[in-house]
């Protein structure tokens, strides 16, 4: 998931950084200081989601949950994910410093797209229908993310095309798991605390 430093070409790095700056700027505009505790706490929830490892056959996958984050935070997902990724690079060594922009866009842009796609569906009165939209969001975000990772690799040079093609099938299991997990999570939230999803309507 995390692309490391040195692999991507300069144009890809620069365009990733520019897109990330724009996204973070919009996100910061939409977030006021009153929301700060909420966004901070939610960002840490998603930080923790990334170390929930689920077994899958002989190996394991970790959750990403950017779809659900997007559904809840919208554009604010950009600054939240930027900070989370920055901390992961510096203190844990996942990813790289100069590719931070590309990595942020690859994870946060799908979150925003899912926000707009599932905005209506997730607010459906029936918990089942809302949960299905949650599953679509969870799985969809992974598809978009993997396509974007593949593109940023493929655009960086001919020699990465094979690696880019390998990215897509590698993400299919994660996609299925995230779909089921998101379904259950949205179903639970809808049953236990529906105002959590619906209150942002106003």
């Amino acid at each position: 998931m995390h692309i490391v430093d040195g692999a991507l070409s300069v144009p890809v790095l620069v365009s990733g950084a520019v897109l990330a700056v724009v996204g973070v700027f919009i996100g910061l505009k939409k977030m006021d200081y009153d929301h700060l505790p909420l966004v901070g706490v939610l960002a840490s929830v998603f930080f923790i989601a990334s170390y929930i490892h689920l077994p899958l056959g002989f190996s394991s996958v970790h959750l990403i949950m950017n779809g659900l984050l997007g559904i809840i935070l919208g554009w604010v997902a950009f600054p939240a994910l930027l900070v989370a990724l920055l901390l992961q690079v510096i203190f844990f060594g996942f990813g790289g410093l100069l590719v931070l922009g590309v990595n942020t866009v690859n994870i946060a842009l799908p979150a925003v797209i899912i926000y707009y796609l599932c905005y209506k569906g997730i607010r459906h009165e029936s918990a089942k229908v809302a949960a299905i939209w949650g599953a679509i969001g969870g799985a969809g975000a992974i598809i978009i993310t993997s396509v974007m990772v593949a593109f940023s690799l493929a655009l960086s040079g001919e020699s990465f095309v094979l690696a880019a093609k390998a990215v897509l099938p590698a993400h299919i299991p994660i996609m299925i798991v995230e779909g089921f997990v998101s379904y259950a999570a949205v179903y639970l939230i809808h049953t236990v605390k529906p105002e959590f999803i619906t209150k942002e309507k106003s």
Partner: peptide, 21 residues
């Protein structure tokens, strides 16, 4: 497993939102 982890995650979200408030 996936359903239970989903519930766990949803519960974590709800508790964190309440904590944020």
């Amino acid at each position: 497993t996936w359903k239970s982890i989903g519930y766990l995650f949803g519960m974590l979200l709800i508790r964190s939102v309440e904590r944020a408030e």
